[in-house]
Design a protein around this nucleic acid. Structure first.
Lengths: 334, 334
DNA sequence: TAGACGTGGGTAATCGATAACCCTAGGTGA
DNA sequence: TCACCTAGGGTTATCGATTACCCACGTCTA
């Protein structure tokens, strides 16, 4: 069987309380000699703390539970976990993620996580969206990551889509571009907010008349690998029309990848004829496109880190909405 | 505080044992009436099983621990978790992953996981490799995923690199290609095995003399985003040399992405002038390249699933090496 | 009609770590 | 010399779920 404090106590000829103090309680009163002997024996016997037992007294396990939309799939989403994990480790906590793959019953999954008695629970979404958490769980979930709770009852961390779109657009303008087309992701909250930021930057630059356009990237509402892409046809049309854009802002790096292919077909040079910029910074893709893609990096890691801080520090007023800034990654497509 | 069986028992006017039986023990002897009443009260009070408490008697938590090389980063690696998770859920188990991000001390991380008393532990690697597990842990780790234990003491699940390379090469040959260059990943076990498979297929096809070449994709041993790529220079050279290949097999989809860019620069058409194929099936990339990339899909999900089956079923002789087949995903680059 | 058996349910020990509380011996100040 | 302090450590209740064991009926069977 597994080694318990009792076994160590017996072997060392002291009581369990002494063993417990020697191994875990840093401040327990005892001679350095005893402490060392106990530690040695523990090592020798291969003792491993039983967190389940400890949690019985403590009331919770050293876990941060994460209920994920459908998380683990995307390369960025994993960044959220990394951010959480890093911050959690500093408090000797582990991150325990559970995905509701298709399961429509959020409550059931939250309960599944609660069975493990985590110290705190976060809800994380794959795409930036609004989530209507069932009433019974607004108390249970401490932080919403990459999504906001419908009624602003839960502290929420989201990317600053508006600001990012405004900034990248201004960046294009500063690079001398005057006719910018935005191939946006339709049907997504992120898309709506970005469109607003885009339009504001355009207005601020006094470029309203200059043929600015916002077009959808796909036909189906949610952007997925199976949605039929409109990128090729849009770009073909844009580039053969009377009002050719000199910059294309894409909804994400995958859309940009398709845009590159489309621009190549119509013989346009990047960035000489047309600058391309986008959102995400999916490094695999962005750094390997030719030319490498300038893109706004999503603050996933930062959201994860902040989430852990809030959950463990716990000194925020519930309901706050934190908008985290994107980061411009300049490559050579602008 | 949280609701316990005791609270329910009190409210229902029965003993804890009855409550326990009603909620969990399917076969416990008791009237259907009592069972229903107890369930109702449990629901009403919002009871959530305390797995830590249960685990004290059971001896383990319903968890499969996964110690990951540096896993969570890659899009395929997450497939391993998904495979594990799916199979684990069927047994009402959860997957608990812990990454050794840079921490060189595998043992320490394994112990961290052991503190949670998982039912079984798997070790998963990001790249197919050989791992020398410290002696003390060969008993602890039940399955190695995407890697093999150095001394064959632990059951290991790995992709059949040799077979995959042989098959995709034969596929190229069958498509009429006679002069195939392989831009391989240097310094990796997968690369070595694939090279052997590649050579065997070439020999079998009687194409030994035909200018077959194996070239490294990068200068540094381990392929990462910072390693300096040799793909462009290789392809430029190959295509301008006297013995132009009519097919290029790439080490992975990211290499293929660079190969596409390089071929474009030298004006070669895919697949008319040169066919391109690779390994991984990183859908994001493979399906969006122009033309879409034909590639051998890694069996990550299958490895995860099999791992869970082995860990929970437990009827394999330790030390077995399972080689799982890749799956050919035909698109239009060949 | 006594013993056997089945049904519905109670009692209490148990798992491992923790912590509130208690004990002892030696030392100290008044 | 005595009440008191302190270092060092022991005892035991506790957390919540499970389970071995026991009890009180009612029903059958020999």
């Amino acid at each position: 069987m597994t080694v318990s404090l009792n076994d160590i106590a017996e072997r060392a000829g002291v009581s369990v309380k002494t063993v417990s103090g020697a191994l875990h309680g840093g401040s327990a009163r005892m001679s350095e000699q005893t402490r060392l002997r106990v530690k040695e024996i523990a090592e020798e016997l291969g003792y491993v703390t039983n967190l389940a037992a400890r949690s019985m007294r403590q009331g919770w396990m050293p876990l941060i539970g994460v209920v994920a939309d459908e998380l683990i799939t995307s390369p960025f989403a994993t960044e959220i976990i990394r951010g959480l994990d890093g911050a959690a480790r500093a408090s000797d906590m582990a991150v325990f993620a559970m995905t509701l793959n298709g399961s429509r019953d959020v409550g059931a999954v939250i309960e599944e996580v609660r069975r493990f008695r985590p110290r705190a629970i976060a809800y994380a979404a794959m795409y930036h969206k609004t989530v209507a958490l069932p009433e019974a769980f607004v108390e249970t979930v401490g932080v919403m990551i990459n999504c906001r709770e419908a009624n602003n009852r839960v502290t929420s961390l989201v990317p600053d889509e508006f600001g990012a779109a405004r900034d990248i657009t201004s960046y294009l303008v500063e690079a001398g571009r005057k006719n910018i087309a935005f191939i946006n992701l339709p049907g997504l909250l992120a898309g709506e907010l970005r469109e607003a930021g885009f339009r504001q930057a355009i207005t601020e630059a006094g470029l309203d008349g200059a043929g600015t356009r916002v077009l959808p990237a796909v036909r189906r509402a949610i952007y997925s690998d199976r949605a039929h892409s409109l990128v090729l046809s849009h770009i073909t049309e844009l580039m053969s029309g009377p009002d050719r854009p000199d910059a294309i802002l894409c909804g994400n790096d995958r859309v940009a990848m398709e845009a590159y292919a489309a621009l190549r077909r119509v013989g346009a040079q990047i960035p000489d004829d047309v600058a391309v910029a986008s959102f995400d910074n999916q490094v695999d893709i962005a750094s390997r496109l030719d030319p490498p893609l300038t893109t706004m990096a999503l603050p996933h890691r930062a959201m994860g880190r902040l989430a852990a801080d809030i959950l463990l520090g716990g000194d925020t007023t519930p309901g706050e909405l934190h908008k985290l800034p994107f980061q411009l990654v300049e490559r050579s497509s602008v």
